[in-house]
Design a protein around this nucleic acid. Structure first.
Length: 460
DNA sequence: TCGCCTATCACCTTTGAATCGG
DNA sequence: ACCGATTCAAAGGTGATAGGCG
């Protein structure tokens, strides 16, 4: 068993010379993405992460922060994040636990958050962690600020896309990779439902410091918590062995007690083996019973690169993603190195809020790759619309085209796709903690692009 | 009545400009 | 003139709360 810490050391930096592949090999699968603050995410996930959504937009906490490696230093990349519904349900908080409250509402306008540094050379993305701090969530379907629009009382998880592209013109022709982290799933709410989540937010979010109870104040600040990360990783690494769902299945009631110790004290328990999401049990149940999608339907890894985490998520991954409509399927693509799947596309509404961070990115000094020309703010609105038009031409079909969504599994997956819509689940290697599965995505069908709005407003 | 949403509030952190001293 | 450290105010993020709405 290998802990995430080990994995990090294994994967950080460029590949060793003796296995050093050519540039194409970089494209073929050496890109690694690691979620930072995994302990914090896991702490929330164990209880059932909730994210406040408001009309003006609310930041996430914890916020998404990732480390990247395996990028070509000289090549430019674009980083994107979108939010994928976990399932086709609406939930309600009933007596200290989440319950299904019916079918999900129609999908809100789909938006993708573009990291303000994009595009930037690989050296920029890899030299430091990449933060999506300023990503905001909103429930305002008429939002004009480029925030990601979600439905309250619905469950989502962020999906990270990295695209090798010199500019946003070429994003859609480029190979992209998608990463998800199971512990980042959350329920969008307009007001916190679980008081334990509220406590965690207050304890760990510096902006909420004013609400901390001085008597029971957290001894560890957010930052100091992660000073202990190596120890915490050691503890949690035990939990990676989670082959059977029975082992990991939990009773959510275990978290119901109001005065229960917060997970921040988990280091006291050292090797607490039963760490799980409160969703696990319910998911398992739903999969077997009332899931409208079907339990064993799709190849989750054909479209997303699930990143192993220190916690025990494996138990439900197959079930979860087997029924989850989020990732698209890719018939015949999958793990064959040359596999190029054919996708119908759904064009995301790419948007980001103006951010001074982008100016920081442009301050990146010249790298060994020679002068970098990080573009200033540009109006890509027309740019990408034009790209859509061009993409519709038959002549460009052969290009690698970015396609986070497919209509096989459109992002608006609220309709209940029949099980036959998805190929059988792909069988993973049993130990995927040692090597992440890589997939590149390519467009095959671009005709649909024009159906979807792209940059309905300019927010650069 | 209930569940959810929204506006407002006080408290806090973050950020950047202004100032000062070496 | 330059640079780094410090100070301070404005901007913005936070959960709590009361009230509105269907």
């Amino acid at each position: 068993m290998q802990s995430i810490r080990d994995l990090k050391s294994n994967f950080s930096g460029p590949p060793p010379a003796h296995i050093a592949p050519g540039p194409d090999a970089y494209l073929q699968g050496n890109i690694r993405m690691f979620l930072e603050d995994t302990e914090l995410w896991t702490t929330f996930h164990e209880i059932g992460t909730e994210m406040i959504i408001t009309k003006p937009g609310r930041r996430m906490f914890p916020h998404c922060k990732v480390n990247l490696s395996g990028l070509i230093p000289c090549a430019k990349y674009v980083l994107l994040v979108d939010m994928v519904p976990e399932d086709g349900f609406r939930y309600k908080w009933n007596k200290k636990k989440w319950e299904v409250a019916g079918k999900a509402e129609p999908q809100p306008p789909c938006r993708t958050y573009l990291h303000p540094d994009s595009p930037a050379p690989g050296s920029h993305w890899t030299k430091q962690s990449v933060s999506f701090l300023k990503l905001k969530l909103t429930n305002n379907t008429l939002d004009q600020h480029g925030h990601i629009i979600l439905h309250s009382m619905h469950r989502y998880h962020p999906r990270f896309h990295i695209v090798q592209a010199d500019d946003l013109f070429s994003v859609r022709w480029s190979v992209f990779q998608t990463f998800t982290f199971p512990e980042t799933s959350f329920t969008a709410v307009t007001a916190y439902q679980n008081t334990k989540i509220t406590k965690l937010k207050i304890d760990y979010n510096p902006f909420a410091k004013g609400f901390r109870d001085e008597v029971h104040q957290v001894p560890l600040s957010h930052s100091s918590l992660f000073m202990l990360m190596p120890f915490l990783f050691c503890s949690s690494s035990h939990l990676m062995i989670c082959g059977s769902s029975d082992f990991c299945q939990s009773s959510y009631e275990g978290f119901d007690g109001e005065d229960e110790e917060l997970p921040k004290r988990k280091e006291e328990d050292g090797v607490k083996e039963e760490r799980y999401s409160p969703w696990d049990a319910e998911r398992e149940h739903r999969v077997r019973t009332d899931s409208p999608v079907g339990a064993d339907t799709r190849d989750l890894y054909s479209t997303e690169q699930l990143v192993p985490t220190p916690a025990s998520y494996q138990s439900y991954r197959f079930h979860e993603y087997g029924k989850s409509p989020s990732p698209s399927s890719s018939i015949g693509s999958s793990n064959s190195g040359s596999g190029r799947s054919s996708f119908e596309s759904r064009v995301p509404d790419i948007a980001t809020v103006p951010d001074h961070d982008s100016s920081k990115a442009r301050e990146v000094g010249p790298s060994s790759c020679g002068p970098q020309h990080l573009p200033g703010p540009q109006d890509y609105t027309g740019v990408l619309n034009m790209s859509v038009a061009q993409a519709s031409k038959p002549g460009v079909i052969g290009h690698h085209i970015y396609n986070p969504y497919s209509t096989e599994q459109p992002l608006g997956q609220w309709g209940s796709p029949g099980p036959s819509q998805y190929p059988p689940p792909h069988h993973l290697t049993t130990d995927y903690t040692t090597q992440a599965v890589h997939h590149s995505y390519h467009h095959g069908n671009v005709a649909e692009w024009s159906q979807y709005p792209l940059f309905s407003y300019s927010c650069w």
